[in-house]
Design a protein around this nucleic acid. Structure first.
Lengths: 120, 120
DNA sequence: CAGGATCCGTCCGGATACTG
DNA sequence: CAGTATCCGGACGGATCCTG
């Protein structure tokens, strides 16, 4: 995600993984695309809080890293559809696992953060 | 990990998970601590590229979120040891899975990035 | 509509120093 | 040694504009 000085430790799986999917929205993007939302514009609408610029950047990174690919339909207006490569698909079980873990953890986090808020 | 405007979508597991472990080093930290490296100073030495300040911050966040806890030994010099809470331990399988995925993906990423380098 | 470029404010992280 | 505060430069993200 912003690791360029300690180039990337190819021996460390976590380092590699963080490099590729360590940005805020990448799991979400892969998830949404796997669900069939393929066009940039639809993704902006589907994902709460992402902006066009960031979406564009992260899509291109995912594409560069070989997790995503796209098809360009030379229509007017232009249409582009992203889809998961095999590498991207290999990540889906992990995303699902992370999502489920997060669901299970949500209640705990809620209590913790709201407790903190009330201390103000 | 800088999502404070779109507070946190507790309905979205990915959102919750990213909030808690979406920083660069958190998986690494939990991993190392689970391996028995418990003191901040040892963690700085064990993790390639992290600085004391960032370590401190991420440790405290993990502690705040209830994934980590610590024991303070009132010795001189002061000794502190972090350990995983049950929530933190529940994350280990995921970390392991991410690590393994990263290992498998490393070769592909290497080819891609080195290919890009050689284009310069 | 896709997506790249630019301007610019904000946040993050490195370095350093200080306290207990 | 652990943890916090401060200063400061650089990276990131938002808004906007432009091209195909």
């Amino acid at each position: 995600m912003y690791q360029r000085k300690i180039p990337i430790d190819y021996e460390c799986g976590l380092s590699v993984a963080m490099e590729v999917v360590g940005s805020k929205w990448k799991f979400c993007l892969l998830d949404e695309i796997s669900k069939g939302i393929k066009r940039p514009r639809d993704l902006v609408n589907a994902i709460n809080g992402i902006t066009k610029r960031v979406l564009q950047k992260q899509l291109s990174e995912l594409e560069l890293h070989g997790l995503l690919s796209k098809t360009i339909y030379p229509e007017v207006p232009l249409r582009v559809e992203y889809f998961l490569t095999p590498s991207g698909e290999s990540l889906l079980p992990l995303i699902s696992a992370v999502d489920q873990w997060g669901m299970g953890f949500a209640s705990q986090l809620k209590v913790i953060l709201e407790g903190k808020d009330s201390e103000i």
